[in-house]
Write a protein that binds this DNA or RNA. Structure first.
Lengths: 335, 335
DNA sequence: ATGAAAGCGCTAACAC
DNA sequence: GTGTTAGCGCTTTCAT
């Protein structure tokens, strides 16, 4: 029942534990035959190294913390997939936490992770600055942080992986213009998220370029939920603001918006075109399918994992910001 | 930079490490004042126990493996939330794997988890029997398995947490009948999943009861995806099978079905009512919102976690099957 | 009430 | 090329 240890092998073969260890580690200072015998015996006794012992030796927990704002859309799951692709083969375990877009819960999660003694943290923040002090404190303990998607205050010297929110939003809004829309509503999301402002700038650039800016078309939402998307449209309709299209900060907001539009018997894209940013599977699950900026989420996770590995290996590695390309995918909601 | 250890405290206070340890563990054999001093010093030096060392001592990895069929719907995320609620406060870390409904990948995932030396595995299978041998092998190593939602072959003596697929499906199908539907199509999912058959039995019972069974209304899908749902409807339409409603095995299949219906300009629920089983947030994100059997997913995760803890504590604890109640939520898609 | 010492499984100086 | 020993951080007999 109990698993074989190096000690068992040592007894079994009448060799010292160090020789066993060396043989297992492919150390050159081991007789070829000895190594064979060790390997065979290991196989025979079903030896598998005890990761906990290794960890204790190396002083690493081989645990990475993950902090994400939500898990109801496939966004985080996709990024996670990338992270896992890289980290699992290396023996890392995860502590994944989500905060429901609530910075206070994010804070608790971070504290939880400190207690777990993680080797590093990969994080998608829910508020740009709220938890800055904790980020710093954790980094001060020599625990590297890597950010993806929503990144923090520039002042923080950390590695990040992002897409170009500004450019991609510009292009998407321009697509709306090119398909004949002139009254483009923008559902923003809370301004405490950097990308919200970046994407807004992209939007602003294009509507200015075409001279079609109207601030009544902008709706600031409180949160990031489906219902926030619904409410945004409701507000526009209540205020009798005319619009022929909507660009939403995220798929979730866009889908909430669509839901309300359809409920009010507005046709998509006939009466109102809808486009968004994110590009999760959700955009293909709704009807009509949603035009969206599709981010390479799995790739994003893989890169984030690699960045954190670099830092774990040597925390003085200079921080990098990796910018990934995103794809504009045009679907029925705007065509 | 390096974290304080018991040894540091020992030096700092000129006490033996054992006394420190005892004080920290609230052992009665420690002078009250001594304990205070230790606690203060611990606080002062920022002492936190090294989990890895504890794990090595106890022979546990404090790691739980999770195996789920997919992560694109919020289903697994919700269950995970429950698991985490219970397990994180106890210091457990996770290795979460998903297999895209592919039993071969599930197999690899299980093998990965063996390598991680997990203390237990919580699993939602993607095939009833395919990986039975691995389940047994792992259990043979004294590693407990707990199943939720989709459970394996009865022959396996394991704890499980489920809902009553048969009853709930019966009730939901009866709801369709009560709202006047007589031609109820059923989108099944692969029969290699126990729940597929259970739910089918529930469906069958009701259509038999009302004498409205017609086997042409049954579509066996290859997989569990959105597209499988679409294809099912396409097949029905191609074969010119008339139907006034659809019950689908899962939200995902139902949403795929809805998508195709809408694409064919069929009105929901006017021409075709749609209902499903699962009850994830997805059912409220589509338009029209989807009537579904809503399972207590977070609760399910919490129970699964508790069941595995029981087994970890004492693997000879008799296995339990916990059956949770599910709610029928009627939304626009059938009303 | 406190200390000394062994040991969890493994690796890595340091001998020889 | 192989063995001896110490040590990672902690708990737990066993002494005292």
């Amino acid at each position: 029942m109990k698993r074989a240890t190096i000690k068992d092998l040592s007894k079994f073969l009448s060799l010292s534990t160090s020789t066993i260890s060396r043989a297992l580690l492919n150390d050159k200072n081991v007789n070829f035959e000895t190594r064979q015998r060790v390997l065979d015996a290991a196989d025979q006794l079903g030896y598998k190294p005890n990761l906990t012992a290794l960890n204790l030796k190396s002083g690493k927990s081989k645990t990475i913390g993950i902090v994400v704002p939500e898990m109801v859309t496939p966004f985080s799951a996709k990024v996670l997939e990338g992270i896992q692709n890289v980290l699992y083969p290396l023996g890392y375990r995860l502590v994944i936490t989500q905060c429901d877009e609530n910075p206070l819960i994010e804070r608790e999660n971070l504290e939880l992770l400190e207690g777990f003694d993680v080797d590093g943290i990969i994080i998608n923040v829910c508020h740009e600055t709220f938890n800055n002090d904790i980020y710093r404190r954790i980094m001060g303990q020599g625990i590297p942080l890597v950010f993806f998607d929503r990144i923090p205050d520039k002042a923080l010297d950390v590695s990040k992986v992002i897409v170009d929110d500004y450019i991609k939003t510009s292009l998407m809004v321009e697509h709306l213009v090119e398909t004949g829309r002139k009254r483009i509503a923008y559902i923003m999301g809370p301004p405490t998220i950097r990308n919200v402002r970046e994407r807004f700038n992209g939007y602003k650039r294009i509507v200015d370029k075409y001279g079609i800016f109207d601030k009544r078309l902008i709706t600031q939402t409180e949160g990031m939920t489906f219902n926030d998307g619904r409410n945004a449209i409701q507000q526009l309709l209540d205020k009798k603001v005319e619009f022929d299209s909507v660009f939403a900060f995220s798929d979730t907001l866009a889908i909430g918006a669509m839901n309300f539009l359809l409920e009010k018997s507005l046709r998509i894209p006939g009466d109102v075109a809808v486009a968004s940013f994110s590009g999760t599977e959700l955009s293909t699950m709704v009807y009509p399918q949603l035009t969206s900026v599709q981010q390479p989420l799995t790739k994003m996770g893989e890169i984030a994992a690699e960045l954190i590995l670099e830092k774990i290996k040597d925390n003085s590695t200079p921080s990098k910001t990796v910018s990934l390309d995103a794809l504009l995918v045009f679907r029925t909601s705007t065509l």
